[in-house]
Design a binder for these strands. Structure first.
Lengths: 213, 213
DNA sequence: TAGATATTAGTCAAACTTGACTACCAGTTT
DNA sequence: AAACTGGTAGTCAAGTTTGACTAATATCTA
């Protein structure tokens, strides 16, 4: 599973009602176009698809107030909210080596209550440790690890990544336990979206070294 | 770019001549179905596509000797070898946070000479460091990092991952400098493929905790 | 030896992703 | 006032990915 559905559902939900271009801008504000597949085509596709599936409600809307073609606004449905929370919880818990899914979830974790976020992250650490145990036991050849030759570096890399992933998660857990951030039910939420008419200080369209097409 | 083309080209090349099912088995032997998109549909699609593009040569071949439908065998062309080496060098050098591409490249790095592999990996470290510098400068708000709220955890996670990625790469460089593995032109290469008729000790089809569909 | 099961090899439709392209309007030049 | 520039909003075809399905032979088992 990619991160696109979680990102789009979360963005629409924060706005209450949003058209595709708004979602696209929010995600760019987050830098999501750099670390996920949140590109225009994917966003518009996801919006239509999820509308068809009843996760979003599409309003055919009047021509734009600010130039450009008419736009369609979307609202999240109850079913959409349930799906959103399901995806969010999964993304925080599951270890699948896809950093974009976790990144998306980090952006939305404060939609949960602090306690639940902590539980999910602790579960994440457990899942990673279990994965590590299972994979090292399973892929260690009976005749010693030399058997694998340079192929062993692949596993070495996975295991190293898993260990660092668990370590980072533990750090996040400590920060959250220490009172960082404002979670659901703790007052005025931090707004990770752009207000209408505010320009994005980060999304200049410039590219950075190491960017990949 | 996904890892599938590199994986398929590399597997066909190691065999000299291979049909889809053979490629599929090799990649399963590597565990590639767990950490990349090397699933049947993608493999057969990549074979056909690359044959159409002249990277592979398709031989319409007699019915299978071991049951099942007739099979098509593929051979890598000169153009295919050039593309393979290009993908391999790119995968070793570029930092795009997609661990499957690097994993695939690790499996094939010994097709290069030791010196070149080292240069590419050192370049990789440079690219990661450059990426880190650019991204931290670029995304650090003028009014201090608190501005970002929990969204800052996304960047924190990227930067942490980049640092660990560079660290791991440096470790690999040391191991290779220390004489590990057999690179091109250094004698009998290590065979990362299954010989015909040898059963795969790892690919049982069992799943592990944390696996994702 | 008939039926069940496993293995070999691959196909296919549906969904998703990508990057380039279109179209519209506002403001700014020439 | 015609042409250009730039932002807004979205479409589209081509390519890719997925997971379930087919089809053929071999092997086991009652």
């Amino acid at each position: 599973m990619s991160a696109i559905r979680l990102l789009v559902l979360g963005a629409v939900r924060q706005h209450g009602r949003a058209h595709g271009y708004q979602v696209r801008n929010d995600l760019e504000y987050w830098g999501a176009h750099e670390w996920s597949n949140a590109k225009p085509g994917s966003i518009y596709h996801a919006l239509k698809q999820m509308a068809k599936q009843g996760l979003l409600l599409a309003h055919e809307i009047a021509p734009s107030t600010a130039g450009g073609p008419p736009r369609t606004e979307y609202e999240i449905t109850d079913k959409g909210i349930r799906e959103y929370l399901k995806l969010l919880r999964e993304a925080l818990t599951a270890y699948d080596q896809k950093p974009d899914v976790l990144s998306a979830a980090l952006g939305f974790m404060v939609d949960l209550e602090r306690e639940e976020a902590l539980e999910l992250l602790e579960e994440r650490v457990r899942v990673i440790e279990e994965w590590r145990a299972s994979v090292t036991e399973y892929y260690t050849p009976v005749d010693g690890p030399e058997q694998l030759g340079h192929i062993g570096e692949i596993m070495n890399f996975w295991v190293y990544s898993a260990d660092r992933g668990a370590e980072w998660t533990r750090g996040l857990i400590e920060r959250i336990k220490g009172g960082a951030y404002t979670f659901a039910g703790e007052g005025e939420p931090f707004m990770g979206v752009l207000a209408e008419g505010v320009e994005n200080p980060y999304a200049t369209g410039e590219s950075h070294p190491g960017d990949r097409q």
